Simulated scan of single mutants.
Amino acid sequence: MIRVVTAAAFVAGATAMAAPAHADAVDDAFVAALNRAGIHYDNAEAATQLAKQVCPQLVGPGKSFGAAVSRVQGGGIPPQMAAFFAGMAVKLYCPAMMKSVTDGTFFDWIQAPHM
């Protein structure tokens, strides 16, 4: 679960929030985007793991951006910030999905259930 913290707690715990040494550039960009948006948390690795769960929530029967946002909220992100969090996750972790929405190929991502 991600715990959103206040600005004072964020400043006090900034060293605890530093990205882990094994983080990659996409993780770093995601954490930086959250920080710029004022979404502060107490565990950068947990935040990036939650973000990586968004893309699979977009494809398949019964899956949607709304389901992804709900999962993000369940992970501790407040409702007023969850859509931004999920949107940024899509932009950074599965950017081809964003492009597919605009070029009309989004449904190519959806796999039909096997019978």
Rank of each mutant, 00 (worst) to 15 (best):
L50G: 08
N43Y: 14
A47H: 01
A23F: 14
A83L: 02
A29P: 09
R71M: 13
A51P: 05
G62P: 06
T6V: 15
F84D: 04
V90D: 00
D103E: 06
A8W: 13
A14Y: 05
G74A: 12
F10E: 06
G76L: 05
M17W: 06
F10C: 03
K99L: 10
V101K: 03
I77T: 10
M88S: 11
F85G: 01
K91L: 02
A19H: 03
H22K: 10
I110A: 13
V31M: 03
I2K: 02
M17I: 11
M81Q: 14
V26T: 15
D108G: 15
Y93E: 09
Q73H: 04
G74D: 09
L58R: 12
K91S: 07
M17P: 00
C94N: 14
A51I: 02
K91W: 06
K91G: 02
Y93I: 10
G66P: 01
A47T: 07
G75E: 09
A25F: 04
V59D: 08
R3W: 05
A16V: 08
A12S: 07
A18L: 07
I2L: 12
L50V: 11
V59F: 01
M81P: 00
Q73P: 07
Y41P: 00
A23P: 12
A19K: 06
A47M: 02
V72F: 01
V26I: 15
A68K: 02
W109Y: 15
I77M: 00
T15L: 07
P61R: 08
A89F: 00
S100C: 01
Q73D: 01
A51F: 00
Q49L: 11
P78H: 11
V69N: 06
M88E: 15
K91D: 05
P56D: 03
L34I: 00
A18C: 02
T6R: 15
D27A: 15
G104L: 07
A37Q: 11
V11D: 06
Y93C: 12
L50N: 11
F85H: 01
A33N: 00
P61T: 04
V31T: 11
D103T: 08
P56H: 10
V69M: 08
A33S: 05
D108I: 09
T105W: 01
G60W: 02
V4G: 11
I39H: 02
N35V: 08
P20E: 09
Q80T: 13
V54E: 01
A51Q: 07
G38T: 09
D27T: 15
P61D: 07
Q111N: 10
G60R: 02
C55P: 06
R71G: 15
I77F: 00
A16G: 04
A23W: 12
M17C: 06
C55D: 00
L58G: 02
L50E: 10
